[in-house]
Design a protein around this nucleic acid. Structure first.
Lengths: 339, 339
DNA sequence: TTGAAAGCGCTAACAC
DNA sequence: GTGTTAGCGCTTTCAA
């Protein structure tokens, strides 16, 4: 019969007493079952079941130093690209018994540093951040706490932390190259804020390689559908001779498409438009958006695996390039200059 | 001079020794500073700074029982509606020094129960779940662990847990009533899977009140843009005499709009369409979607406050109805039968 | 293969 | 106001 006198969680001692062994033995059954005799192990495990015993994570943490918690610092949950990444990350970490603590930074390095400190304080065993632009305080924290940390969404093998992500510069270059190969020589670039956003900066820098072949004109805006729409308005007002628009994020592309259509601009006949990211709606919009697919789910899974390896086997991950992929859909069209 | 001999985190004893006080005094400075003399307090705090001392969360948890962690179980991160909710939740919890542990359930009560157990095991002080459909194992867990738990996205004052959410039935009824007031008498209903989704079921049930006035025809599909598009195809194939479509989620509305436009159906001239949720793109699409705004950010903030009150002051929250709001935009139009 | 016992870093009850 | 001390629930030597 199970002892139900008390309501509090049972502990090692309760189990030990009920099973007629010492607490050390119970602890062994939990942590290294193979060094306990089969019979004892069976009896103890049975008792554990009976008493609904669950080891205290706090007590375990205080002794072993392992909390099984991983902290993720992301700019925002509002962008599907990060949400999808987190989903994959959480799924894979969970398989290995690791919990994910989420903190949003709003893209602000100071907030990031503060929240990172908080995560470390509560015992996060590893940190996952976005991009490679971080505050000094953050770098110091990683150094002092000697905590495994991985930078994602950005590939840079020379960064102080292992990076797992795409080559943002290459992604935008691929996009622009595609437009050029389709005959476009003047392209409007719509992008989000440059400050504190290394992904945007990298994507912009990628375009420079084609500076000789393609003339570009930039429109900076906020990173939202509304921002994309606003940029499209600016674009129209500017009366450029651009034959295509490259949005450095699909959210922006979405906003731009809607605004252009509101102004009766036919896509892709009058102007070609493409994005980068490949969000869910990009393949369902009218027209479907030609874009660069960034495999964020794969990045999440890969990052989780890297963290697990680092934590369990002390294997520091190498930086990993996640290949982006051009997806040609309906929003772009070959341009032929009328001679 | 700071002692740098050791690399490990300094502890209470280190601080006490360096400041020339007892560990109890240091503990007091940390937890109830006002009962320590100003001078002592100053000296101790200085030492704490010097040694970069950070109290061990695990040790604190083992003694005080407080881990400062809250677990959230949500169906998916892929839907902006949940992501926005989480963002608000995390923000407000963070202000009170609480961390958010995220677990996704894929809408499966069994996965939910398993992950809920995991959250409790690692010391979550409270649980936040979505909806009111949960497994027996989950209910048992809440009961046994006596852990504060709040159900969100669904208002039901009779549920065993406090609920903070909207009246889903009322939301869909409001939508259908609006369509009726606009002259629509036959309406196609596009909705997500009914199984394991009480929100969808509630929204469907809300429509029944108007059964006498409005004839409806249902189209069940998956909860995604693609699902919405597929449902729209079905709708067209069915050749109904419906003059409006009510999508029980904006994601579905989005997919449906795109598919209808692909089939050259003019909105809202040939058919009216509305949604429920009010996602970011709903106000930017062409046409902008008439919908029911569900204030998920407010729900997140409110839920966080409720959790904090419960944890800090043992005040069990009352169920709270978050008011939804009809937002009339461009995708709907008055219907006049041609007599 | 098992048990006894010494901590881990902290909080809180109690004493001065 | 401050110090002493007994735990919290566990892991981990060290002996047996």
């Amino acid at each position: 019969m199970v002892d139900r006198r008390s309501n509090k969680r049972s502990n090692l001692r309760d189990v030990a007493k009920a099973a007629g062994v010492s607490i050390a033995t119970v602890s062994r059954v939990l942590n290294s079952p193979d060094i306990v005799s089969a019979e004892t192990r069976r009896r103890v495990m049975e008792t554990i079941e009976d008493l609904h015993f669950v080891p205290s994570a706090a007590a375990r943490a205080i002794n072993s130093g392992r909390t099984k918690m991983v902290g993720a610092l992301i700019p925002t949950l509002d962008n599907a690209i990060f949400a999808k990444f987190l989903a994959a990350l959480e799924a894979r970490l969970g398989e290995s018994g690791l919990s994910l603590i989420v903190a949003t930074t709003d893209g602000d390095p100071d907030i990031e540093a503060r929240k990172a400190q908080g995560l470390v304080d509560i015992g996060a065993e590893a940190l996952i951040v976005s991009g490679v632009t971080h505050s000094h305080a953050f770098d110091e924290l990683i150094r002092r706490a000697r905590i495994p940390a991985i930078a994602t969404s950005y590939y840079d093998e020379h960064y102080s932390l292992p990076t797992i992500g795409y080559d943002n510069a290459a992604a935008s270059l691929t996009a622009l190259e595609f437009l050029r190969s389709e005959g476009h020589r003047k392209v409007g670039i719509v992008h989000g804020p440059v400050s504190n956003n290394d992904r945007t900066r990298a994507r912009l820098s990628g375009l420079e390689k084609l500076a000789a072949d393609v003339t570009i004109q930039s429109f900076e805006t906020t990173l939202s559908i509304e921002g994309g729409a606003a940029a499209a308005r600016e674009f129209l007002k500017a009366q450029t001779s651009c034959t295509a628009i490259l949005c450095l994020s699909d959210v922006l592309a979405m906003g731009a498409i809607l605004e252009l259509q509101r102004n009766n601009v036919r896509l892709p006949d009058e102007i070609s438009l493409m994005g980068i990211d490949d969000l869910p709606y990009s393949s369902f919009s009218n027209p479907q958006i030609t874009t660069i697919h960034l495999p964020v789910s794969r990045m999440g899974t890969y990052t989780a695996d890297a963290v697990i390896q680092w934590l369990d086997n002390d294997i520091v991950p190498k930086s990993k390039l996640i290949e982006a992929q051009l997806i040609v859909r309906q929003s772009t069209k070959t341009y032929r200059s009328q001679e």
